[in-house]
Amino acid sequence: MSSKIIAYQGEPGANSHMACADVYPGWETLPCASFEDAFAAISEGRAALGMIPIENSLAGRVADIHHFLPGSDLHIIGEYFLPIHFHLLAVKGAGIEDLRSVYSHVHALGQCRKIIRQHNLKPVITGDTAGSAREVAEWGDKTRASLAPLMAAEIYGLDVLARFVEDEDHNTTRFVILSREARRPPPGAGPTLTTFIFRVRNVPAALYKALGAFATNNVNMTKLESYMVNGEFAATQFLVDVEGHPEDANLGRALEELQFFSEEVRILGTYPAHPFRLRMGERA
Rank of each mutant, 00 (worst) to 15 (best):
H66K: 08
A40D: 15
V106E: 12
A63Q: 12
H87D: 14
K92Q: 14
L99M: 09
I76T: 10
E55A: 05
N56K: 03
H107F: 14
G50L: 04
A63V: 09
Y103R: 13
D73P: 02
A90F: 10
G95L: 13
K114F: 08
G45A: 04
C112V: 00
H85V: 09
P83V: 01
G50F: 01
F39C: 04
L82D: 08
I115W: 11
L74A: 07
P83N: 07
A94Y: 08
I54H: 02
A94I: 07
L88K: 08
S72I: 00
I42S: 01
S104V: 03
I115F: 12
H105Y: 12
L58N: 07
P53W: 12
L69A: 05
A63L: 08
S101F: 00
A47M: 04
P83M: 05
H67Y: 15
G110A: 06
P70Y: 09
N56E: 12
L109S: 05
R100L: 13
K92H: 13
G78I: 06
Q111S: 15
R100I: 10
A38T: 14
F39D: 02
A63D: 13
E97S: 14
G93H: 03
Y80K: 11
G60I: 06
A59Y: 04
H107R: 15
A94V: 04
I116G: 08
Q111M: 15
I116Q: 05
L89R: 09
L69E: 06
Y80D: 06
S43W: 07
A48W: 06
P53R: 12
R100Y: 02
H66R: 13
A108K: 02
Y80C: 05
A108P: 07
E44H: 12
S43M: 13
R61H: 11
E55H: 02
H75E: 09
I42K: 03
R46E: 15
G78P: 01
P70K: 08
I84V: 15
E44M: 11
Y103E: 12
Y80T: 07
A41D: 07
H87F: 03
A94Q: 06
F39A: 01
A94L: 04
V102T: 10
Y103G: 00
E97L: 09
D98G: 06
F68Y: 14
H107Y: 13
A47Q: 04
V62F: 08
Q111G: 09
Q111N: 15
A40K: 14
C112P: 01
S104N: 05
H107N: 15
R113Y: 00
S101I: 00
S101G: 11
N56Y: 01
H87I: 03
H67D: 14
V102N: 07
L82E: 13
K114W: 10
L82Q: 13
S43N: 13
H87M: 02
I77H: 03
L58M: 11
H66E: 14
A47P: 06
L82W: 05
K114S: 12
H87Q: 02
L58A: 08
L89W: 10
I52N: 04
I115R: 04
A40W: 06
Q111D: 13
I54E: 03
A108L: 02
L74H: 09
I65T: 11
A63N: 10
R100K: 15
A48V: 03
V62L: 00
A59F: 09
A40F: 12
M51F: 08
D98W: 09
F86S: 13
